[in-house]
Amino acid sequence: MSNIFSFSGRIRRTEYAVTQVLVSFVGGVLFLIFSASLFAGESVATGMLIILFVPMLLLSWISLAAGAKRCHDRGNSGFFQLIPFYGLWMLFGDGDHGTNRYGADPKRRVSQADLLKASALRQVS
């Protein structure tokens, strides 16, 4: 798994999906903890809200970082993840073959353009 806090590079669909599932699960558990604290009283709920703010902020950062890297795999800016329903496109759409401006292909596939460059270099040598 790549650096989960970094917004640079590319990740595969599987890593993106697993990250989003784990973030959703942990976020759900934190929400249940906060919901349970509501029954204990207003002061407890306020304290839990303050305590859970940092983990929720970290989860949001991790989710946005994974989304940005998945957008990069598709050859787009990380801001594309802000488009409604683009997350489905990131989940089911294939990434760019070969290297793009955001880095090497995480599946280690070679694009036709890279093959043509390699063959041209061999012919020149």
Rank of each mutant, 00 (worst) to 15 (best):
G27R: 02
E15P: 05
K107R: 13
L82V: 15
E42K: 11
S24R: 02
M1N: 09
F31D: 02
Q81W: 10
R13A: 10
G9Y: 11
W61S: 13
W61C: 12
S24L: 11
A66Y: 08
L57K: 13
F34H: 04
V44E: 02
L32Y: 06
L38G: 04
A113N: 02
I33E: 01
G67K: 06
T99W: 01
Q112I: 12
L49V: 01
L88W: 13
G27F: 02
T99H: 03
A17V: 13
I50D: 00
A68W: 08
G41H: 02
L121P: 08
L52K: 00
W61K: 12
F80A: 15
A104E: 15
L82G: 11
F79H: 08
Q112P: 05
F85C: 12
F92D: 10
L115R: 14
P55E: 03
V26E: 00
A104T: 14
P55L: 03
R108C: 05
A66L: 12
S125H: 13
G41L: 02
S111P: 08
F39A: 14
A36K: 00
S35R: 03
G103W: 05
S6V: 09
I50A: 04
L82D: 09
R101P: 07
D96F: 03
S43H: 08
N100K: 04
L59C: 08
K117H: 06
S2R: 13
L91A: 14
